[in-house]
Design a protein around this nucleic acid. Structure first.
Length: 579
RNA sequence: GGAGGCGUGGUGUAGUCGGCCUAACACGCAUGCCUGUCACGCAUGAGAUCACGGGUUCGAAUCCCGUCGCCUCCGCCA
């Protein structure tokens, strides 16, 4: 006797009269004294079982409680006239049981799966297996599986090999804090869990694998957010003998395939934008194209003024809010918003049929005002916010204002707004360390036309790096890699790494590149973020089966946890008392 | 490292400017009644260290100090 012959959502009128066996959990029991209804839930849906007192299995149904696991055999019966439930797939029918097997009893659960939505997340994580029973969560994993299947099919068709790389690797400088794993065999030495399989995948290119991918777990010991977990999954890709364009179009094809297979959505071609453009047009390296029009650069218009605050500002950036007439209080709030984000203040212009109101009426003539309004493309009813300041700041603040306005006023367009951001700077200045650091990572290839600036003006050097941005979220990041050892050494020296450090940290990579490295490049997508966006989930926790809390703990296993002193002894580790 | 929000039966909340709280309501749970429900209905009942520790007070869920936990954001995340 099998546990199950059909899924709950397969039951419909076509099966009326036939005998079936269903298996699942008791979702609810409705006891009418003489008549008992029991809803049975499996991962496909729900079906109603009904029994009258004269039924041989009536006492068994009577004894069922929430979340008992049962297998029920019975005859599918068309529901009486007017008793159809349109809410569930099997709502036309019900099962009249002939055999009820209680496979497993359940204690009263801390919460019912169907009410979990409103339950405290800590409780849900502690009883994650109950939480995961609710369809809305389960469906995220169905989608995740679909996407992974689609990805693997795509990669396989395109000649990629799925290759696993070590989880026990070595700590590398630069980048996020590593999770360390002590070695027992080499006392005092540590492995590091990979922040990405970066070096391994490049070594695979040197090895001639040509096209590699991996659904790779990676680890970063940094503080967490709704969209950040300490361990997460990357779609890691690397390929040889391809130009940047080839890589971008292949990866774009991949995303289109995934959205078609996963959601039935046909994506349009992704627009391209340089990092410089992204900053100037959206004040961000991950523009959200749903949030309306780009910023307007009004620096030139400001130059003509007598008023130094604007005329002498390095940049004056405008954000146009269409059909928006803010109140006095709202204007104050926007001003505070700008200050909170580092601007010295905010100038506003409100255009109406009867003229322009402004916070700068003392300094700007009517002519000045209309020049601004014209240049910014204002129409009656619009509000223009101006931010003056230095290069990144003025754009960034205006960009954040643009975003926040769209959010607050519900102006976000719907849909999937992808874009490529390219030509990132190769280096950034680190105030903390008082030195240049890699913007992407130290193996990123500089753009050929900028190589001559490496020593003279390194901050102006652009790189062959590219990001995929979806709805304002960084989804993927990649680059062409340096494959000439002399260029790599040059980069290391600009980064201020000594030969000893280079040899100690990256010697193996430099050495590998001396044995025939092909031109290569790659990219890594955040799989969890992708699924989160596709599923419309608010947190990564909703697309990871057993996620960690914001403090990095797992309430279910109660990890991390202290270990036995014998384990520490074996590792030669002593715990310092907390000060 | 910093900021904010939250913490009251199993779950969700009310009560929080000190007393009428011997802590309320809904869901859940238990028992009984009920033959067409699907958030079944009705009745009865059990169930609470008011996160933890300290303090103020005649009196603390409520005020003060500290700690812990959860969530969100900034820093951080090549």
């Amino acid at each position: 006797m099998s546990f199950r012959t059909v899924w709950a959502n397969q039951l419909d009128l076509s099966l009326a009269g036939s005998e079936v066996t269903i298996a699942g959990w008791v979702q609810r029991r409705r006891d009418h004294g003489g008549l008992i209804f029991v809803d049975i839930r499996d991962r496909s849906g729900i079906v109603q079982v009904v029994a009258e007192p004269q039924s041989a299995v009536f006492p068994l149904l009577d004894g069922l409680r929430a979340e008992y696991v049962v297998s029920i055999t019975g005859v599918v019966q068309k529901r009486p006239e007017g008793m159809v439930n349109r809410e569930i797939a099997s709502g036309d029918v019900e099962i009249v049981p002939t055999q009820v097997r209680v496979l497993s009893q359940s204690k009263t659960p801390p919460f019912m799966p169907q009410e979990a939505e409103s339950v405290d997340e800590l409780v849900r994580l502690k009883y994650r297996y109950v939480d995961l029973r609710r369809p809305s969560l389960f469906n995220n994993f169905r989608l995740r599986d679909k996407v992974l299947y689609s990805l693997r099919t795509f990669f396989h068709e395109q000649g990629f090999l799925e290759v696993e790389t070590p989880a026990l690797a070595r700590s590398t400088p630069e980048g996020a804090r590593d999770f360390l794993v002590p070695s027992r065999v080499q006392p005092g030495a540590f492995y590091a869990l990979p922040q990405s399989p970066q070096i391994f995948k490049q070594l695979l290119m040197v090895a001639g694998f040509e096209r590699y991918y991996q659904i790779a777990k990676v680890f970063r010991d940094e503080d967490l957010r709704a969209d950040r977990q300490p361990e997460f999954t990357q779609i890691d890709v690397e390929m040889s003998f391809l130009e940047r364009e080839d890589i971008l179009s292949l990866m774009e094809m991949m995303m289109k395939r995934v959205f078609a297979d996963g959601l039935g959505v046909m994506l349009e071609d992704f627009p391209r934008m340089s990092w410089e453009q992204a900053l100037r047009l959206y004040g961000s390296d991950k523009p959200d194209l749903r949030a309306g029009e780009p910023l307007v650069d009004l620096t030139e218009t400001a130059r003509q003024l007598d008023w130094d605050v604007l005329a002498k500002a390095p940049h004056v950036v405008g954000a146009v809010c269409r059909q928006y007439q803010p109140s006095r209080k709202q204007l104050d709030q926007w001003n505070q918003f700008a200050k909170d984000h580092g601007a010295s203040g905010l100038i506003w212009l409100i255009l109406n049929e009867d003229g322009i109101r402004t916070s700068a009426s003392k300094w700007l003539s009517p002519d000045d005002l209309s020049r601004f309004a014209d240049t910014a493309g204002m129409r009656p009813g619009d509000t223009l916010f101006l931010v003056a300041g230095a290069k990144p700041l003025a754009f960034v603040v205006a960009g954040q204002l643009r975003l926040e306005f769209a959010r607050q006023e519900n102006r976000m367009e719907s849909g999937w707004k992808f874009l490529w951001v390219t030509e990132f700077p190769l280096f950034e200045w680190s105030e903390d360390e008082n030195r240049l650091v890699s913007a992407h990572h130290p193996f990123t290839m500089p753009m050929a036309e900028d190589i001559h600036l490496l020593t003279t003006n390194p901050l102006a050097v652009r790189s062959e790096a590219y990001d995929v941005v979806l709805n304002g979220i960084e989804l993927a990041s990649g680059s062409l890699r340096i494959y000439q050892p002399e260029v790599q050494e040059k980069i290391f020296s600009v980064l201020g790494l000594s030969h000893e450090e280079i040899n100690e940290k990256f010697g193996f990579l430099i050495q590998a590149f001396q044995y025939g490295a092909p031109p290569h490049g790659g990219i890594a997508f955040g799989l969890d973020r992708l699924i989160m966006l596709m599923a419309g989930a608010k947190s990564l926790r909703d697309v990871i089966a057993f996620p960690k809390t914001a403090r990095g703990t797992d309430p279910l296993m109660e990890a991390p946890a202290p270990v036995d002193s014998r384990q520490l002894d074996e590792l030669g580790i002593q715990i310092k008392p907390q000060s």
